[in-house]
Design a protein around this nucleic acid. Structure first.
Lengths: 113, 113
DNA sequence: CAATCACGCAACTTCAGGGTTGCATTTCAA
DNA sequence: TTGAAATGCAACCCTGAAGTTGCGTGATTG
């Protein structure tokens, strides 16, 4: 069974992304940015059951994982989605899954023979 | 921009998986099960800096997300990895990423014309 | 049978995450 | 200029996650 070990930095980045997406509010924010495009904090706060400050913190967490980035536009701050970390995390999950499945297949063949 | 919204149940399952994998110890457990194959709690505790009870709880969390399942074998409990939720979560990330990227491309084309 | 191994259960402690309120600051617009 | 809008900053509360210790129980083995 070949381990998906790889560079520890990649693992840590993946863990960071998972941790960021593991929260309901943050996952909703990502989905909203994805479907609604770039938006300001106030816009993102609309139809959310938490405070603007809470949203701000969640955005900071997402930014810490590299999933979003904000840029000032006048007196407001527009937030954008970054897809690169999503892809990397997705590949990490795939890698684990594939490693495990091939290991299972090898084991099955071994038992059958 | 078409939203990846989909069934809320799927989103919640993905969130559950992300939350489970967002912890360093648990991600290490998954990697270890993947590369080392089915193992008992005591085996998984070896070379871990936390207690056996802590490992047990982490395994319960992973099981709650459907990522692992344990089965008794005599006096010990053997834990296995389940790849299905990993795949589903991976596809969820891909979906968001693709939606976002195509949206960006559409926007770029629109601006250029 | 006795010692031990592998584990389950429960109480307890600690602390960071998620949330709020209050106020200051910058920008916009009439 | 002046009021309102959009945000930043800081202090504070509060629950739950993560970890530990202690003890009890079924399975193994000598």
């Amino acid at each position: 069974m070949s381990p998906p070990s790889g560079a520890p930095a990649k693992v840590e980045r993946a863990r960071s992304v998972f941790s960021a997406l593991g929260d309901e509010t943050r996952l909703a924010l990502v989905a909203r940015l994805c479907s609604g495009g770039p938006q300001s904090i106030t816009q993102l706060t609309t139809r959310s059951d938490v405070t603007r400050q809470a949203i701000t913190r969640h955005l900071d967490v997402l930014a810490g994982a590299g999933l979003v980035h904000g840029s000032r536009r006048g007196r407001e701050r527009i937030w954008n989605l970054d897809s690169a970390p999503l892809n990397e995390a997705s590949r990490y999950l795939e890698q684990i899954s594939n490693t495990w499945d091939t290991a299972l297949n090898r084991l099955r063949k071994f038992v059958e023979e």
